[in-house]
């Protein structure tokens, strides 16, 4: 099946430090990682789970059947890199973090309106970029719900402006929970939405059992 792998610079697996052999005029060589445990082996993710595994490089990968389903990932005993997704880089990551932060802003603004803080909500929705969001969020000083909600926006904007895009996108997704009144399922829902945005922006096909 075709899946995706986020890797650290140099095609290095972020958790094991394994340096993946990269494709050269065709698919890369197969890598084997056989284990008696079904959850160990070559890991990759489906397009719908991209937002959970962000890293510097994104690769399209092929996993040999049988492919097991894990939590937010797929696993097989053999895999190889097919090609790097060139559309994913610092610029795309910055755009992604900004989009996620502005979605968090919309959720926070909606929660503030529901609670009667229309003025604070309006101030937030007027900003259109991260610097504006940071300034508008810091300017919200109403105690209680407004202050607790905009704290997420301040952190999301600050980390994105500092170039820490995975952290920023995570904070934006976390903001979905208090904005909804505490529904933890909103976190996964926002991660799924982030993943759809990524797949669309990067031109990735949807999740199918596409065999190369």
């Amino acid at each position: 099946m075709i899946a995706y792998k986020f890797l650290a610079p140099g095609a290095v697996a972020p958790f094991t430090g394994f340096r993946w052999p990269v494709p050269d005029d065709g698919p890369g060589p197969w890598v084997e990682c056989a284990s008696e445990r079904a959850d160990l082996g070559i890991h990759a993710c489906r397009a719908r789970d991209l937002a959970y595994w962000l890293d510097t490089e994104l690769w399209r990968a092929e996993l040999a059947e049988p492919v097991g389903e894990g939590q937010r990932q797929v696993v097989a005993s053999r895999g190889r890199l097919l090609e790097r997704v060139e559309a994913w880089g610092p610029e795309a990551a910055a755009r992604f973090a900004q989009e996620a932060a502005l979605m968090a802003r919309d959720r926070v603004a909606a929660a503030l309106r529901r609670a009667g803080f229309d003025e604070d909500a309006e101030a937030l929705t007027r900003c259109a970029d991260l610097r504006g969001l940071l300034a508008a969020s810091r300017a919200v000083t109403s105690p209680g719900l407004p202050s607790s909600l905009v704290a997420y926006l301040v952190e999301a904007a600050e980390t994105a402006l500092a170039g820490d895009f995975p952290v920023s996108a995570y904070i934006s997704a976390r903001a979905a929970v208090p904005s909804s009144g505490g529904d933890e399922r909103e976190f996964a829902a926002e991660r799924a939405r982030q993943a759809r945005w990524l797949a669309a922006r990067l031109g990735l096909p949807g999740d199918t059992k596409d065999r190369a």
Binding site: P14, F15, Y52, W53, G70, Q71, P166, V167, A169
Partner: peptide, 20 residues
């Protein structure tokens, strides 16, 4: 030591993706 359950290991590694 490689003794975490699959679910715990996944949550562990997902955390690493956003926590420097």
């Amino acid at each position: 030591e490689g003794t975490l359950s699959p679910s715990e290991r996944t949550r562990f590694e997902m955390h690493l993706c956003y926590c420097d």
